[in-house]
């Protein structure tokens, strides 16, 4: 036990030690930035001071608390849009993987959807679904469809002939091969697609909010920008980053839990690398 605690202690120490130069660099950047604006090298209308941005963050989050409402509106739009887009994409990909004719006659339309810049549909989608949350959800769903579709399909179509033969030789049915071999093999790629899809869904929600909306982070952002309140605008941008990070890391967490066997191989690879480094050091 003492052995364990000591190793975690050194690891914690080294991690703490490693983070210090990063913090110093970050602080240095902020100080230079602040000085440059205060001394008039940068116009504060174009790039505001870091302290002004911090003040805007404090006001948005703590003093007025205006951000929370908009934050959750945008988060909801992106997540609901993602869920709709992802379920359509995954079901179409599964149908395409199971049936060759289906893939042949559906994929041209998916490709057409892909080469069309989905953002171009923004005005039309707003005309169709109205000024409320519906249009933002729809645009998010349209934008996140293709990366998920193509990743799932690629994952499901990669065949490991040897394993399939093994499955056949022990008498597995086609359904079993699909469920126990092809789906697990496709999951890592599916999650990669989901991560891209979440980011694009957020972009869809925000762009639709720019075009026409009454609430959401995108509205807040364009409102602040056009008031030339750059500090608040940048603070809102950072909130979008926060939404992006929340979405990305929750998908990463799911990836880690659901595709747990890759976590094992990842850990094994990491421990092998550590062993190699250790051996190299001992050898010296």
């Amino acid at each position: 036990m003492s052995d364990f605690t000591s190793t975690t202690d050194t690891r914690f120490d080294s991690r703490l030690f490693r983070i210090v130069p990063h913090l110093i660099l970050f602080a240095l950047i902020l100080v230079i930035w602040e000085a440059a604006v205060r001394l008039g090298f940068i116009t504060s209308i174009i790039i505001p001071r870091p302290t002004a941005i911090m003040g805007a963050i404090a006001e948005l989050y703590f003093v007025k608390g205006t951000i929370y409402h908009h934050f959750f509106i945008t988060l909801t739009e992106a997540v609901v849009g993602f869920l709709i887009g992802a379920s359509v994409a995954v079901s179409l990909a599964v149908c395409s993987a199971l049936s060759d004719p289906f893939k042949r006659y559906v994929s041209p339309y998916a490709i057409v959807l892909n080469v069309t810049p989905g953002i171009a549909l923004t005005p039309i989608i707003i005309a169709w679904f109205g000024y409320g949350m519906g249009s933002k959800i729809a645009l998010a769903a349209v934008l996140c469809f293709f990366p998920i579709f193509v990743n799932t399909l690629t994952g499901l179509l990669q065949r490991d002939e040897d394993r399939e033969e093994l499955f056949r030789s022990v008498g597995a049915s086609n359904a079993q091969i699909f469920r126990k071999l092809r789906v697990p093999a496709a999951l890592p790629l599916l999650f990669a697609g989901m991560k891209i899809g979440l980011t694009t869904a957020l972009i869809g929600a925000v762009v639709a909010e720019f075009s026409q909306a009454t609430e959401g982070v995108g509205v807040l952002m364009s409102r602040f920008s056009f008031q030339l309140d750059m500090a608040s605008s940048l603070a809102t941008l950072l909130s979008m980053t926060l939404i992006g990070l929340i979405l990305f890391y929750s998908m990463e967490f799911l990836d880690d839990r659901i595709v747990f066997w890759r976590r094992e191989t990842r850990r094994a690879a990491a421990s092998r690398a550590k062993a190699r480094a250790w051996n190299a050091r001992m050898g010296q």
Partner: peptide
């Protein structure tokens, strides 16, 4: 990592205001 998570297109209004 931070830049990757930001919807980069969202800076559009900011840049229009600045430039």
């Amino acid at each position: 990592i931070v830049l990757e998570a930001t919807p980069r297109i969202a800076v559009a209004p900011l840049l229009i205001a600045a430039l």
